[in-house]
């Protein structure tokens, strides 16, 4: 389980980018994280991933604290940033090998997974090419493949569908379902409310650093649409 307890962070000691966030994401959850620009989505995702430190609270990943036991916590987690800025001079396969080495994935498993996902995302013929020759979407696919290479129990994604073509988006959603069926959990931010509504069993809405709604998608949406709920919450003072 990914447990976020009373987590707050401020960049300037004045305004809190995230304020007393509490969330519990269980294995099997596809949890959507929605919010306006600057609401605090990326800050929370980066805090969970161990990229940013936070001022107070606690984040545990399957009982491992991201602060006190960060290497162990990171081993079972994968993070996909909103912008696929990766090592441009490496070839796709070299980058995947580097990430697999960092996670200690054995050769047989990594080869199987690379084959599987390279074919799935139609990257098998370009893996030997340098990353700087890839399109934005291809870079995004390599980052996704690198995140999947160690079968993470927790997958964090920041706007994962941006830049992906419709087929790749569809495949990524399939991968989500496959992972959660194996007991992983997925927590991702998105601006595409239709995707969140259809894909996620749970959603959280963040406004100015605070969670203003969270829970089962169907309970939040009820007879309305997620878009209407989101806009109503944004307009509330």
């Amino acid at each position: 389980m990914l447990k976020i307890t009373n987590v707050s962070k401020s960049y300037d000691k004045v305004k809190k980018a995230i304020n007393e966030i509490n969330l519990e994401i269980c294995p099997g959850d596809i949890y959507g994280f929605i919010g306006h620009n600057g609401a605090g989505k990326t800050t929370l995702l980066k805090s969970i991933a161990g990229i940013l430190s936070f001022d107070s609270g606690e984040i545990t990943i399957f009982d491992k604290s991201i602060v006190k036991d960060n290497l162990e916590a990171k081993k079972i987690m994968a993070y996909i940033p909103d912008n696929p800025d990766i090592y441009e001079m490496l070839s796709g396969i070299q980058y995947l090998d580097f990430i697999a080495d960092a996670y200690g994935v054995d050769l047989e498993k990594r080869r199987n997974l690379i084959n599987k996902y390279a074919k799935m995302f139609e990257m098998d013929l370009v893996l030997n090419n340098p990353i700087n020759s890839y399109s934005h979407g291809m870079k995004q696919k390599i980052v996704i493949m690198s995140a999947l290479i160690h079968s993470p129990k927790v997958m964090l994604l920041d706007e994962p569908f941006v830049g992906l073509d419709p087929k790749a988006s569809y495949l990524l959603k399939e991968v989500f379902h496959e992972l959660v069926a194996q007991g992983s959990l997925i927590f991702f931010s998105t601006h595409v409310l239709e995707v969140a509504e259809k894909l996620c069993n749970k959603v959280a809405i963040i406004k100015n650093g605070k969670i203003v709604a969270n829970g089962l998608t169907e309970e939040i949406v009820k007879d309305n649409s997620l878009e209407n709920i989101f806009l109503e919450l944004l307009n509330e003072s």
Partner: peptide
């Protein structure tokens, strides 16, 4: 360093 975002989430000291 510009690759902090890549390296920080990895289990590397």
């Amino acid at each position: 360093y510009k690759d902090y975002d890549i390296l920080a989430p990895l289990p590397i000291k």
